[in-house]
Design a protein around this nucleic acid. Structure first.
Length: 851
RNA sequence: GCGGGCGUGGCGGAAUUGGCAUACGCGGCAGGUUUAGGUCCUGCUGGUGGCAACACCGUGGGGGUUCGAGUCCCCCCGCCCGCACCA
């Protein structure tokens, strides 16, 4: 250790000390602005973090997500790409409204105040955003395009209104989309959802079900498997058949959907959804009272009760029979709540022998069970266990003797020929209910004219701006607060000029987030939601980073929007996000942080204690990006220490250069002043200690690879190894003035700048460079330095390591075999036995199998 | 119930995708520097036996494929996630 570094070792580097200085210096530098210049030939990269909801200040979860995305964004900046890395706020939503009621203010007050807080925190957190593209979805300049898009959907028949049972949250006093009901509870407040009949707006996402499914194919390696699987399951494509059953008293047959048309001959009764119009229609007059009574009981149930797994199957006989088109037999028609009104056709053929639900119902109501597939399992009528498996068809007329697949094909053909049915596909996916009875959202741009009826608001009248409501005006009362704003609600019909009323609902906020990534391409564009040329330039998003909680909702809706916009001819691609990265959560003691558990960790406090760089590094180093980070298991002090080691290396190299310059009266060769200095490599001889150079260049190679595949925790580990090697070279090797040591330090600092921008910038300056290190060129590994001189070859005997050899990497098989057989450890382990077989895998391994 | 994922030291995690298990870090133990503590620098640190060289065991458990398995296949156990009467 030199005297100087011994002295420096006494200094303790505190990463917090340099934050203020660099934050100010960077403020004037505009380092991360994306260029829209068409002449700009750099490769373009669009990197996006899921935009935050402004619920308060940034929290630990944001700190992890943005540390990950920022590291990757900074990497592309260093590579010389024209990078689009924007930020905005998902600013509409219920919490703002609740805060406004509580504080007797306008939701905008709370929203914009929180946005400013978060914006300041993002700057302190040193995220490489292009701030010129900032957007907020609650700005009229933004939400007018929600309305514009709604009208385009409307024109195309993709936005429509219908009556239906909807999920109603009694606490938030609003309708919820299917996707927002989690296990029968409101996604937001957790209260039990009830069913309610309302007239609401829907987006016809089901029309895109097949494409949403098919277009996942090319995403296979680019999106996490669980997300693709969840989407696939959510869409829930089922292949089967529609079969028409004539029903007593009805002119038209009633169609059912089934995935098992082969079991038609076993259909011994028929069930319709009790709360569908069909039930009332079929019901015989003398049974109407019974049906009413049953329905009253059913409607009292919450979804939680309805979905209880082991709930007995209830129902009511409707006094009518249907004709099984297979057997020609009359079968009784029942109504039950186990048949869903909004899946398939709301009616089923019940095959109790081969469907557990139908069997449960049959046993509860004493209905016949007829086995039509011989599966080899015991009789369902006796065991109470249905046999859904494959087998030989029996009791099935023309299907007898066939297997399941053949029987399905045969019966589908017969039904089609007779006009009694056809092959069909059904989806679990329902249309997207977009109406919300809340204030802080985008008004639906529809008016209802006394004379003309439902009328879209003309484009030139957009945006339909929210009225100025605040405080108690916003209190939930079962209808939208907008209904109380009479001046706003009463309007003119755009067609006849007569009296009309505005739609008083607002749009689901997921509409806002379904296209914001397109808006970033031209955030100030006034001719439409986005400038098509700008979108062609940037979109689709190359890498999208966000939590897995959006695996279905947001991502499915965005995919849908992009397909619709594609069909409208405004986009030339059909998928919004080329690659998706789901980062894990930050938890504490194994559990999600929450107020009720009292295990919350405050990001601001963590930053105050350890500084931005150490927290960012802690997030990155703790685990792979997609895994959770348990804050109870990490120690940011370790990262403070690591940052100090990098700083001391940089300081040692920097002051050695200064001393050398003073002595020689000339600047040190490596200390190029420009911010864009090329770091590694260079020409000619005399680059210093080769061993260290090998470490440096191997580190460049590995870190580059690791960042590209987002294995950021390992990338940091490799950098730590380079620090140790450089430290050793300074203390007990060629010393701080060696060019290889400078090369190592400069490399290290550029790599580090992805994760710890403040410390990296400070070190860059210590090394004699102008800011900003963010503009330094990413180092390139010299292939010659990646080739090792000697590699360790493992010599195994019977699969166990018995010796090691240092060999040249190009060693021949024969030569290595010879060396291995002579290796002392191998000779000892063989103990005189003859090798029966020798597996040689040069240059890494030899396995000797003794006789 | 259906679908999927994951189990590696005291802890977080690594392992070029079938080839040295435990990189890197935390924690622990020791040494150096220091008036001392902290800082800083260095070394050791899976288990058992042994003074040691070394041997045996070892990636949730059991079996299999292979010259060779943390990695592939089958069964079981445990934890986590998604869906949940979708016909």
């Amino acid at each position: 250790m030199t005297a100087e570094s011994a002295e420096r070792a006494q200094q303790h580097y505190d990463p917090r000390d340099v934050q203020e200085k660099w934050q100010q210096r960077w403020a004037g530098m505009d380092l991360f602005r994306a260029s829209d210049d068409p002449a700009d030939q750099r490769p373009r990269t669009y990197l996006l973090d899921m935009f935050p909801y402004p619920s308060g200040d940034l929290h630990m979860g944001h700190a992890e997500a943005y540390a990950i995305a920022d590291a990757i964004a900074r990497y592309y900046f260093h590579r010389g790409d024209n990078v689009l890395h924007p930020i905005g706020w998902d600013a509409f939503g219920l919490p703002a409204e609740n805060a406004a009621i509580r504080n007797n203010t306008h939701p905008a007050d709370w929203t914009y105040a929180n946005i400013e807080t978060q914006a300041a925190s993002f700057r302190r957190y040193a995220v490489s955003f292009d701030w010129s593209r900032r957007l907020q979805t609650c700005d009229p300049e933004y939400y007018r395009w929600n309305q514009w898009l709604f009208l385009r959907f409307y024109e195309r028949g993709l936005a429509y209104r219908k009556d239906g049972y909807v999920n109603w949250c009694p606490v938030d006093q609003t309708v919820l989309a299917n996707e927002q009901v989690i296990a029968g509870r409101c996604e937001r407040c957790g209260s039990e959802v009830v069913r309610r009949m309302l007239t609401q707006w829907y987006f016809k996402i089901t029309e895109y079900a097949d494409r949403l499914l098919a277009d996942m194919e090319p995403l296979a390696d680019k999106w996490p498997d669980p997300v693709l699987l969840m989407q696939r399951n959510w869409i829930g494509r089922s292949q089967g058949a529609e079969i028409r059953f004539p029903v007593e008293g009805l002119q038209e047959p009633v169609t059912v959907f089934t995935t098992r048309p082969d079991t038609l001959f076993g259909a011994t009764f028929f069930v319709v959804a009790a709360d569908s119009p069909l039930a009332a229609e079929i019901c015989a007059p003398e049974r109407q009272a019974a049906l009413e009574e049953y329905l009253t009981g059913v409607r009292k149930l919450t979804d939680i009760e309805r979905q209880a797994a082991d709930r007995p199957k209830t129902g009511v006989f409707l006094g009518r029979h249907a004709i099984n088109p297979g057997t020609g037999e009359p079968i009784p028609v029942w109504a039950s709540d186990y048949v869903l009104p909004d899946y398939g056709t709301g009616a089923i053929m019940a095959v109790p022998a081969h469907d557990q639900r139908d069997l449960d119902f049959a046993r509860a109501h004493d209905l016949p069970v007829r086995v039509v597939v011989e599966t080899g399992e015991p009789d369902p009528a006796e065991t109470g266990v249905a046999t859904p498996g494959d087998g030989e068809l029996i009791n099935s007329g023309p299907l007898d003797g066939l297997g399941k697949a053949e029987a399905i094909a045969r019966i589908t053909g017969i039904l089609a020929a007779d006009g009694n049915g056809r092959a069909a596909v059904s989806y679990r996916l329902r249309d997207w209910l977009v109406s919300r009875q809340r204030f802080w959202g985008t008004p639906i741009p529809i008016v209802y004219c006394d004379a003309c009826g439902e009328m879209p608001v003309p484009e030139e009248q957009l945006p339909v701006v929210l009225p100025d409501l605040r405080g108690q005006d916003l209190a939930p009362r079962g209808v939208s607060p907008l209904a109380a704003a009479t001046d706003w609600v009463n309007t003119e019909c755009p067609k006849c000029g007569g009296h009309a009323l505005r739609d008083t609902d607002t749009m689901d906020t997921f509409v806002d987030s379904s296209w914001y990534f397109l808006r970033y391409c031209s955030p100030h564009y006034t001719g439409g939601p986005f400038d098509e040329a700008a979108v062609r330039r940037w979109a689709p998003v190359d890498l999208y980073v966000g939590g897995v909680e959006h695996a279905i909702l947001h991502l499915l809706y965005s995919r849908f929007f992009v397909k619709v916009l594609h069909d409208m001819g405004t986009l030339d691609f059909t998928e919004p996000f080329t690659r998706l990265l789901n980062q894990g959560q930050v938890v504490n003691q194994g559990r999600a942080m929450s107020k009720s558990l009292g295990n919350g960790v405050d990001l601001g406090e963590q930053l105050a204690v350890y500084g931005v760089d150490a927290i960012r590094l802690t997030m990155i180093f703790a685990s792979p990006p997609e895994d959770d980070v348990d804050w109870a298991d990490v120690n940011p002090d370790a990262q403070v220490k690591f940052l100090g080691r990098v700083w001391r290396v940089s300081a040692d190299v920097g002051s050695a250069a200064a001393a050398g310059a003073a002595e020689a009266g000339a600047p040190d060769g490596g200390a190029a002043g420009a911010g864009s200095a090329a770091v590694a490599g260079g020409e000619g001889a005399g680059h210093g200690d080769v061993a260290l150079r090998r470490v440096t260049h191997r580190t460049i190679e590995e870190v580059t690879r690791l960042v590209e595949v987002a294995r950021l925790n390992v990338a940091v580990a490799r950098m730590m190894e380079l620090v140790s090697a450089t430290r050793k070279a300074i203390d007990s090797g060629p010393g701080p003035a060696d060019p290889a040591v400078r090369e190592a330090a400069e490399t290290l600092v550029v790599l580090l700048s992805l994760f710890a921008p403040y410390t990296a910038e400070e070190c860059w300056e210590l090394l004699g460079h102008e800011p900003s290190v963010a503009q330094a060129v990413w180092p390139v590994a010299d292939p010659e330095l990646l080739v090792q001189e000697r590699v360790t070859c493992v010599v195994q005997v019977a699969g166990k390591v018995r010796d090691r050899l240092e060999v040249p990497p190009g060693i021949s098989e024969a030569e290595l075999r010879e060396l291995a057989l002579a290796a002392p450890g191998a000779v000892r382990a063989l103990a005189g036995r003859e090798p029966q077989r020798v597996i040689v895998r040069p240059p890494r391994l030899v396995n000797i199998v003794p006789a």
